[in-house]
Design a protein around this nucleic acid. Structure first.
Lengths: 208, 208
DNA sequence: ACATGTGAACTGCTTCACAGCG
DNA sequence: CGCTGTGAAGCAGTTCACATGT
């Protein structure tokens, strides 16, 4: 399969979230132009994005919402359940564990780890917090697909080493650190400092 | 000033964080090649990024770490203090309020808002949680520079309306909703669902 | 000799514009 | 006629390669 740009995949996710809203409204067709408006892009961009995966629309009509959202879920791999383990039982981990949207989209929080003895064993949304020392062993039997790194920056590198050795191929990193991983492991980083600094830059350098 | 790509600004933030690590180590010069390694890019990219703002290096030597980090702070607008208000006193708001790194970089949490009567008045890292109904009024006297939207998706649009009317020109959005704002308002969005779906896509479509 | 700074070449994402089809 | 699907054109960001300065 052809290589797909990250920006394209992000837009596909967006399109899907709009379609899901519309599904609830019982509207059942949508044009590339409407999708473009919702997502702040152009109709040509929408059609190009979708055309990378097939021809899902009807000329003169637009796209069937149930059909297109099904296709997008398929493309994005949201038809299977993904087993996620969260490493780091701080506020960010908590926010993730509590967020209902994940379960809806097939992301199952399968385990939560921390290294703080005070937290171990405490229940968290029906999960007991486990000792991160057991992660490697647990991963063998529980087959985590995705690991979320929500530790302080000092521990991130070490945790990632364990994650990689456990054979997990996808990491969502909330620690403000650059991770080094083999090329078959995919990392997405969310770095709040970088976002805030981007805003700072925009405020400082915008035309007056 | 020439338009700068968002990707460039993100890299500048990264470079700065590496320089700050090195500053602590009392090393005082660094080459574009080293910076590139730390940030997973190329030396040409580093030099091109920096050259957009001036010539900060010495040929044959590299960049002075204190000088370059100073320049980067200046470029990114991190020399002044930015007043941030957080709207939504949930877990994400809490994670932000607690994160020490922000204060260090000049982002001052000036206020925290919520609409839940049960939360109002409670203290949070030395901030009393205020009623979001007062946001518009408070903004007049307290001059918030940046607003963080950390509310549930249903309330995001309404909150953003108030933020924009209050004259705040920069928004960091954690709600999984597309925001509509005038073109003089900068928005950065952090959407965990999109990141996870990106990982799902990568796991589904990677070469086998 | 070494590492920067930068025009030129390149790559790849986005936009255009229109043929194709319902 | 309307809206999709898609080559071709355009443009922006990245990489190359070398002249330049120390």
């Amino acid at each position: 399969m052809k290589r797909i740009a990250e920006s394209t995949v992000r837009r596909l996710s967006l399109y899907l979230s709009f379609l899901e809203q519309r599904e609830r409204d019982r509207v059942n067709t949508i044009s590339s132009d409407e999708l473009a408006h919702l997502g702040g892009t152009t109709s040509a961009q929408v059609r190009k994005d979708l055309s990378l995966f097939g021809s899902f629309g009807k000329r003169g009509l637009g796209y069937s919402i149930p059909e297109l959202s099904g296709k997008l879920r398929e493309i994005l791999g949201l038809e299977k359940q993904w087993r996620v383990c969260i490493v780091g039982a701080g506020k960010i981990g908590a926010a993730l564990a509590r967020y209902r949207g994940f379960a809806e989209r097939g992301f199952v929080i399968a385990a939560v780890y921390d290294s703080d003895p005070a937290k171990l064993g405490k229940k968290w949304e029906s999960q007991a917090i486990r000792d991160v020392a057991n992660l490697a062993k647990d991963a063998l039997s529980e087959r985590f697909d995705i690991a979320v790194v929500a530790t302080p920056p000092e521990s991130a590198a070490e945790v990632v080493k364990v994650i990689v050795e456990a054979g997990i191929k996808a990491i969502l990193n909330f620690a403000p650190t650059q991770l080094t991983v083999p090329s078959d492991v995919t990392v997405r980083a969310v770095n709040m400092a970088i976002e805030l600094e981007g805003l700072s830059f925009a405020l400082t350098n915008r035309a007056r």
